[in-house]
Design a binder for these strands. Sequence first.
DNA 1: CAATAGTGTGTAAGAGCTTACAATTTAAAT
DNA 2: ATTTAAATTGTAAGCTCTTACACACTATTG
Lengths: 351, 351
Amino acid sequence: MNIYDISKQAGVSIATVSRVLNGSPNVKPATRKKVMDIIDRSGYVPNAFARGLGLDTMNSIGIICADSSDLYLAKAVYYIENDLRKNGYNCILICSGYEHKGKEDALSRLLNQRVDAVIMAGSTYVEAEPKDNRYIMNAASQTPVFLLNADLDCPNVYCTVCDDFKAARSATCALLNSGITDILYLYNSRSYSGMKKLSGYQAAYHMHKIPLNADMMQFFDGSHENIDGVCRFLCGLKEQGLVFHAVLASDDMLAVGAVKYGKMNHIAIPEELSVIGYNNSLLTVCSDPEITSVDNKLEAMCSQLVRTCIGVLNSESMPPKVVYQGELIHKGTTRLTDQQSKSDQHKGGHF
Amino acid sequence: MNIYDISKQAGVSIATVSRVLNGSPNVKPATRKKVMDIIDRSGYVPNAFARGLGLDTMNSIGIICADSSDLYLAKAVYYIENDLRKNGYNCILICSGYEHKGKEDALSRLLNQRVDAVIMAGSTYVEAEPKDNRYIMNAASQTPVFLLNADLDCPNVYCTVCDDFKAARSATCALLNSGITDILYLYNSRSYSGMKKLSGYQAAYHMHKIPLNADMMQFFDGSHENIDGVCRFLCGLKEQGLVFHAVLASDDMLAVGAVKYGKMNHIAIPEELSVIGYNNSLLTVCSDPEITSVDNKLEAMCSQLVRTCIGVLNSESMPPKVVYQGELIHKGTTRLTDQQSKSDQHKGGHF
DNA sequence: CAATAGTGTGTAAGAGCTTACAATTTAAAT
DNA sequence: ATTTAAATTGTAAGCTCTTACACACTATTG
């Protein structure tokens, strides 16, 4: 069954059927009804491939997600898909892994599929020799690219980010202000955001004129969901004689590990050990005590990202970069006053 | 740039270029090389829409996921996407919500897109008047449908399920065997699996000839991630005088809420309150104590589902239903011996 | 060396839609 | 009733590929 069958049955030309199908205003209401009736009765569905061929689009957008099973990224995908769908787009999801290779492959698959745009979530751009991102720039020359929480200054690439530097600096300052100066920064991925947070942590120390200790910035090189591994890792540090009274984690999973470590070693939280996570995810509520965490406005970012995307697809002029601000959500693993957690902002501005 | 340009430059016909592109064996190696060189040099990428039109497929498969931000379903999507991609398929993801309406819309979108198959995860089929599933059956007449953890006996519909009935019965029996007879079954969705678990719970009581108490089967009608809500809900039950020494939850989120409830009320876990969750997700590890939970072999199910799907697409004969068996993973919220947790199996078989 | 069987390549007919442009009908204006 | 303009409809040419079928060429066989 195709458009010819319908046109024949309705006694009109295929052009008219096509017009009806596409809601063109230049169709006499009576004709429209006649055609619609036939279509409804016959259950005819236009062939999307032929349509795509004619229009050079199938209204689909590719989402490259490093790991959609990750709680945070899963939410990102969820928000993005919902918003795009409401705008009439379908999403092709590819779980690429965090490596460039996987993303490059994903990108080439999507360009082959002739998606209208590509959205990337779960960044890896930090070792970032510019050449590491070349493949993204190449892709951007064919189709607009939208990055969630990653920076890339390149035509046709649009970034929606949270200022992780500032958020991590604030969080660190809050701890420093409360008198804790031996803060362990714990991160598990050399992602763009992980490194930004590290810079923020360091900046806070500079602000307070406290020298940095390299041992207090630890990379946990473990599998993604290995909470027990984190716990053991921290136990190892303790045994090596490292002393810390706070942990600033680059994600909530690590923070859960830190809380676990505290319990295992009978260290009172937050009295003897403060813990701050990142993402303010569900995990923070599962833990006991609930974990103080930085909320980085994921939903707002995603919705902005989609807005930018739709704008670009409609040939509107859109800002190449939109920055959100994270917010420290106080829960049970810290004892901070509002005053303490805000105090870096008074001095801020010149960083 | 299209296949004509390439054919011209290579001095061959478009048919030959097409053959080279599709790896047809009927091409002289020298010709193949000549054509490939031109293609590589020019960066030509075949038009997927035209290809789709000719082949009547773009090798894409639709995934309808009720809520891809849910930890469990996010993992399902992740596993499925990975496996499908390895088989050369792209995934179109639609987050449909749990209602039939959303799924019906999603299905029609996907049929419009002419996907090769549809996979559905996150079931709602329980109020299931057969007519409620009519839309799925209709879809199945056009494209094969694969259900994760849902049952539907219909041609061209393939189900990969975990026997939640048996798993819940086992878990309940384990508790009963250990002497706890006042077990609260807590569920938060009237999904297929939620109801199966309920039946399993009831079956265990029948087996042990203990009368059921309707108050001990509670539906938590709250938002998905509302752990505090669960906690308050249980507090409410307690205040109403309901006594229970174990909670069997239909998912880990509820179980976390139960643990929280215990702590809030200074009820020792597992001494005074046992808790069993379902899905054995990350959440069970975040909680303290870690939560005993039923592992329902999600990864194995997903990989089987994809295997079935690929088989069907290759016109192989595939079983319409594959059943996996859940397994109770003992952690810190129960005190069960292996003996206790296995004991229903000896008597089993006639349920 | 002719007949036969492959092997390799080209021609042309689809696949099912969109849309520019031409043709026709209808409505408005004189 | 004409003319003119506007609204509607139809024709036909794309869009870019796949593939059945026909043709040409090269081995193989007797």
